[in-house]
Nucleic acid binder design. Structure first.
Lengths: 157, 157
DNA sequence: GACTTTATGACCTTTCTTGACCTTTGAATA
DNA sequence: TATTCAAAGGTCAAGAAAGGTCATAAAGTC
């Protein structure tokens, strides 16, 4: 049922949440061994689950004494945030990337759970394909517009 | 008499009624096997019986560890949402009418102020005209989908 | 008989998992 | 110092494991 990749992801997030410094350092081979899987499976989890949209950076080093470092990014609420988002979103935004980003913004409490569900439901491929020639462009533009609006000061009064 | 689709529907509703969380997760292949039918028959049942208008949302995931999740929407005693959704089916929704509707739903505390602003910003004509051939159809469809999702029971967990 | 609903099967896309092979790094050795 | 080698991590393609779509046949309905 729940697959290996999900379990590894969950484990990493668990120990990451307990890490005071906001990052963890570990060895690929060792992790793979403890999950009884191919080492490349670890890379798969890292590249699919610990992406920039989801709020992570992964650094690594090869050779003797090599390691993986997974860093949890925090969003600073200063205006830098919007530029960062705009850059991250770019001109197109697939459904997958959008979902990752929205989840992340929910974790950062920029969106409520209801808002996250609302936006995701709009962005679903099945909602857009037959009506919009380029859904990815639509998502990118809309996401930026939403973020701009969510920064309005009058909104939580 | 009682055909396959009806029996599958009945079965799903039965286990759904026993699900504390308001949703069930299962595998298409497994379900098809236990009813001795083609997997696509399950999709048929889902698309004809478990629609938003009937009070359900279906999510799914492909690949290893894939699944179907059927979510029962919360009760809507006055049937207000259902009526609204029915009205919006296949209909068109101008920006003006959309704004009025959203304002009303905000007054009725179905949407928060933030949510209202969010939706309106998406529906703005300037956001849609150049990307979408028929913005009004898009608004109607999207509004329906949003309403359905706002009925989700798991939304405040 | 015409129309609608149900059912199937062939083919497609997405996601996960593994294994073979490659690259980098640092330490030991010639 | 230059070379070698072991110990990491990286990449990629193939195959498995799910669910999705669509045309068409079969079964009901009027």
């Amino acid at each position: 049922m729940s697959n290996l990749a999900d379990r590894i992801e969950e484990y990493l997030k668990m120990i990451l949440s307990e890490a005071k410094e906001g990052y963890i350092v570990l060895q690929r081979g060792f992790l793979a061994q403890s999950f009884s899987c191919a080492p490349s499976q670890i890379n798969y989890v890292l590249t699919t689950r610990f992406t920039a949209e989801r709020g992570y950076i992964v650094e690594s080093r090869r050779g003797g004494g090599g390691y993986l470092r997974i860093i949890r990014l925090g969003l600073d609420p200063e205006g830098k945030f919007q530029r960062l988002m705009a850059e991250l979103i770019g001109e197109e935004l697939s459904q997958d990337r959008a979902n990752n980003l929205i989840d992340r913004l929910e974790e950062e409490e920029i969106f409520t759970k209801r808002e996250a569900i609302l936006i995701k439901s709009i962005f679903a491929e099945r909602m857009l394909t037959d009506l919009i020639p380029s859904p990815s462009v639509f998502r990118a533009r809309t996401m930026k517009e939403i973020l701009a609006n969510m920064c309005r000061d009058d909104i939580n009064v």
